[in-house]
Amino acid sequence: LTDEELVTMSVRELNQHLRGLSKEEIIQLKQRRRTLKNRGY
């Protein structure tokens, strides 16, 4: 997933992508998404 996709994707879509990932990967992705959102994309 690109940063842009992460930010513009709805939470529902995101959760579908996260299905099948490990807990660590999910946590990393969610942190990255929060960081991007805070940057004001």
Results as ranks from 00 to 15, higher is better:
29 L>H: 04
34 R>D: 10
19 R>K: 14
14 L>V: 03
29 L>N: 01
6 L>H: 00
32 R>H: 04
24 E>H: 11
6 L>F: 00
23 K>C: 09
15 N>Q: 12
35 T>V: 14
9 M>H: 03
32 R>V: 02
13 E>M: 06
3 D>K: 01
18 L>Y: 09
26 I>V: 11
34 R>W: 10
2 T>D: 03
36 L>M: 04
28 Q>G: 10
3 D>P: 02
38 N>L: 12
35 T>R: 11
29 L>I: 15
12 R>I: 07
30 K>F: 15
23 K>D: 07
6 L>E: 01
29 L>E: 02
4 E>C: 14
15 N>C: 14
38 N>I: 07
40 G>C: 15
33 R>F: 15
9 M>Q: 01
34 R>L: 07
20 G>I: 04
34 R>M: 06
34 R>V: 07
27 I>P: 01
15 N>W: 14
41 Y>T: 12
14 L>Y: 05
3 D>F: 03
14 L>A: 00
2 T>E: 03
8 T>L: 09
2 T>R: 04
34 R>T: 08
41 Y>D: 13
20 G>A: 05
31 Q>H: 10
20 G>K: 08
10 S>W: 00
3 D>N: 04
12 R>M: 10
38 N>A: 10
4 E>G: 06
24 E>M: 10
35 T>M: 15
29 L>M: 07
13 E>L: 06
5 E>S: 05
7 V>L: 13
24 E>N: 09
14 L>F: 15
9 M>K: 03
40 G>Y: 14
20 G>S: 06
33 R>Q: 07
19 R>G: 06
17 H>F: 15
23 K>T: 10
15 N>I: 14
9 M>P: 01
34 R>G: 05
30 K>A: 05
22 S>C: 05
22 S>V: 04
37 K>C: 15
40 G>F: 13
7 V>I: 12
37 K>V: 08
16 Q>K: 14
5 E>Q: 15
35 T>P: 02
13 E>R: 06
39 R>V: 12
17 H>W: 12
29 L>F: 04
1 L>F: 08
28 Q>S: 11
34 R>E: 13
37 K>D: 03
28 Q>I: 13
33 R>K: 05
28 Q>M: 13
20 G>N: 08
32 R>T: 01
26 I>K: 13
39 R>G: 13
28 Q>C: 12
10 S>L: 03
28 Q>A: 14
38 N>E: 14
34 R>S: 08
15 N>K: 15
14 L>T: 00
37 K>S: 04
37 K>Q: 11
9 M>F: 04
18 L>H: 01
24 E>I: 11
12 R>G: 07
22 S>K: 08
24 E>C: 13
4 E>D: 09
1 L>G: 00
5 E>D: 10
2 T>N: 04
27 I>K: 13
3 D>V: 02
25 E>Y: 06
21 L>V: 04
18 L>V: 06
39 R>C: 14
17 H>E: 03
7 V>Q: 06
10 S>E: 03
5 E>F: 05
35 T>S: 10
16 Q>M: 13
3 D>G: 01
15 N>L: 15
39 R>Q: 15
34 R>F: 05
10 S>I: 02
18 L>A: 04
6 L>K: 00
1 L>A: 02
7 V>K: 07
29 L>D: 01
18 L>C: 08
8 T>P: 01
9 M>I: 05
11 V>K: 15
10 S>N: 06
3 D>E: 03
21 L>H: 06
4 E>A: 10
40 G>L: 15
2 T>A: 04
11 V>T: 10
18 L>M: 13
28 Q>V: 11
31 Q>M: 10
23 K>Y: 09
7 V>Y: 07
36 L>G: 02
3 D>C: 12
24 E>D: 11
13 E>A: 08
16 Q>Y: 11
23 K>E: 08
6 L>Q: 00
22 S>Y: 02
40 G>A: 11
17 H>Y: 15
1 L>S: 01
12 R>K: 13
16 Q>R: 14
7 V>F: 08
33 R>L: 14
12 R>E: 12
23 K>I: 11
8 T>G: 11
23 K>W: 08
8 T>Q: 12
13 E>Y: 02
21 L>E: 01
5 E>K: 07
21 L>I: 04
20 G>M: 06
31 Q>T: 09
36 L>F: 01
36 L>C: 03
6 L>W: 01
40 G>V: 11
23 K>F: 09
26 I>H: 04
5 E>R: 08
